[in-house]
Design a protein around this nucleic acid. Sequence first.
DNA 1: TATTATTACTTCAAGATTAAATTATTAATG
DNA 2: CATTAATAATTTAATCTTGAAGTAATAATA
Lengths: 150, 150
Amino acid sequence: MKTTEKYGKKTDIALSLWVKLARAYYTCAKLSTDNIKTFGLTRPQFCVIECLGHQGEITLTLLSSKLLVTGGNITLVVDNLEKEGLVERIRSKEDRRTINVKLTSKGEGVFKNIFKKHADFITKNVQALTEKEQVQLGKLLKKLGTSLKS
Amino acid sequence: MKTTEKYGKKTDIALSLWVKLARAYYTCAKLSTDNIKTFGLTRPQFCVIECLGHQGEITLTLLSSKLLVTGGNITLVVDNLEKEGLVERIRSKEDRRTINVKLTSKGEGVFKNIFKKHADFITKNVQALTEKEQVQLGKLLKKLGTSLKS
DNA sequence: TATTATTACTTCAAGATTAAATTATTAATG
DNA sequence: CATTAATAATTTAATCTTGAAGTAATAATA
């Protein structure tokens, strides 16, 4: 299905790639979010729990940089997780400006219970691509992403 | 840089793809959003203006389905654009439930002024990939996205 | 025709997100 | 040491986002 050239071939190809990236991401994100919802968590909350589950106790600043969100955002998401008793803030003794976050034992339990399930869910959902295609797609995405950050 | 196998090869490859997709999308989206901001618009506002600029007058329901967002969302974004005098609501006479939206002349002017600029910006930013790679990446993304919607 | 169901949009509540301003603490420097 | 810089986190205002509930208009049906 070839649509008519609108802005020149080069631009058409680039915009088409742009749209496909956004659509693919949207579809994946929606699936993922819906799955996470069955665990009783929002997506940002899941991301925080996953990060803490793998990294252990880290500062709020590091957490926000790993998740690519602003500090104000992390404050709120961690607030909500703290209300649920899944994470706790611990003021550092070396530098009283920094605050570390870690999973509570309840949070650890949740992490152990759901992460593997979610990973399996993701895995199942990309099997329309062969392993080779998955690797190839990953390489191209990485090349694109990396080139843009410079 | 090969990290140790954590959840089995198949899962590792799938999760890696997942992460790369999210990172690439994030980087592209951030660049795009920052560029749109220089036009004095938010990203959702730009998306509405772009859609109306290309499609012409359409119903709110159609607009929300094209942009993959909920109706409540469109109501708000269109509210804000209406306050700026960029779009206007027009109640349909055939079916008084439906409301059409279209660009005002001011909105048309904005669309004509910025869309080409933004398209060129996007084009410039994907040139780290060859045209062949862009097409290849697009194909894989489409295959992934399409397979998930079934 | 009267009732019921569907459709289109809005409103509301909760959470997410950013950028800018603020507070508290530490580091740097004159 | 006192002042100034920088850093870490929070708060605030604005917008976005969803899902659920509500309103109004149209369509379907008994």
